[in-house]
């Protein structure tokens, strides 16, 4: 059995195409009220680049590679942590009014958030 991943040529293009389509469709449904959290949310998601940085730094041989790799991890971690912090902070603020018709479960937003 071999778990080594090898993506090349057209397989990569298929992955890109499907992922791009998924992103387009998912974002297309988001109401305008959430555009700012969404922008910082998607900003958080590309913070996954930190994983690439960790890979590069662990495999670094020369001092130059170590220095650049260190910055890759530093910046990637900043992207991920900061993106999460601001998005979570913004989304926690959205709540419905208690006196509004009870078609929405008010408070559910809070209880989910309280996990953190």
């Amino acid at each position: 059995m071999d778990f080594q991943i090898s993506i090349s040529g057209f397989v990569a293009l298929y992955v890109f195409m499907l992922a791009g389509f998924a992103g387009w469709v998912i974002i297309g449904r988001v109401p305008a009220i959430l555009h700012t959290p969404l922008m910082s949310g998607s900003n958080f998601v590309h913070g996954i680049v930190v994983v690439g940085g960790i890979y590069a730094l662990l495999n670094a041989i020369t001092l130059q590679e170590q220095v650049i790799g260190f910055f890759a991890v530093l910046l990637g971690a900043g992207n991920a942590a900061g993106g999460y912090a601001v998005t979570d902070r913004m989304l926690a603020m959205f709540k419905t009014s208690e006196h509004a018709p009870a078609h929405r479960k008010s408070g559910s937003v809070k209880s989910i958030h309280a996990k953190k």
């Binding site: 993506i7 791009g20 387009w24 998607s42 998601v45 680049v49 994983v51």
Partner: peptide, 25 residues
Amino acid sequence: LEGFVLQNPALMIAGMVVGAAGMLL
């Protein structure tokens, strides 16, 4: 793109999802 170079599908997918979402936004 760097995900492709590093052969890491998670980077490829997350990156491209954000790329497309960002364009639409």
